[in-house]
């Protein structure tokens, strides 16, 4: 089995992270924006696992579990918030959720 070098994993995770940032900034639907954040968190997980494997240490794996657990908790709260928005406004377009202004 060929050994995949560390840098490939890091480049892949950097690309995923950048895609997540781009999605967060440019997408208009709240759900897609939320998915972009999840993509960023998964890029972080990949980085952790790659480094952890390379360093022959277990704590990076443990860290990625913490990230997953917290992401799940965050998703529960986030989807609940998105649901209340939809109930009260009937839209999930980010541009239309802008009543708080001057």
């Amino acid at each position: 089995m060929g050994h995949v070098p560390l840098s490939w994993y890091l480049i892949l995770s950097a690309i995923l992270f950048a895609l997540g940032v781009a999605g967060f900034v440019y997408r208009k639907s709240v759900i897609t924006v939320f998915m972009s954040i999840e993509l960023m968190l998964n890029a972080v997980n990949l980085t952790f696992i790659a480094f952890s494997y390379e360093l022959h240490r277990i704590d990076g794996h443990i860290f990625s579990f913490f990230v997953m657990v917290v992401a799940a908790a965050e998703a529960a709260v986030g989807l609940a918030i998105i649901l209340t928005i939809f109930k009260n406004r009937g839209t999930l377009q980010i541009d239309e959720v802008d009543s708080l202004k001057l």
């Binding site: 972080v44 480094f51 406004r89």
Partner: peptide
């Protein structure tokens, strides 16, 4: 409605920030 909007903005930008922090932590760890 004001509460809804406040929570949504706080949640989205807060999680976005967390992702940056975590990516920084991951690189520091590595």
């Amino acid at each position: 409605r004001r509460n809804n909007e406040s929570a949504l903005k706080y949640f989205l930008l807060g999680s976005f920030a967390t992702a940056f922090l975590l990516y920084g932590i991951a690189w520091t760890y590595g």
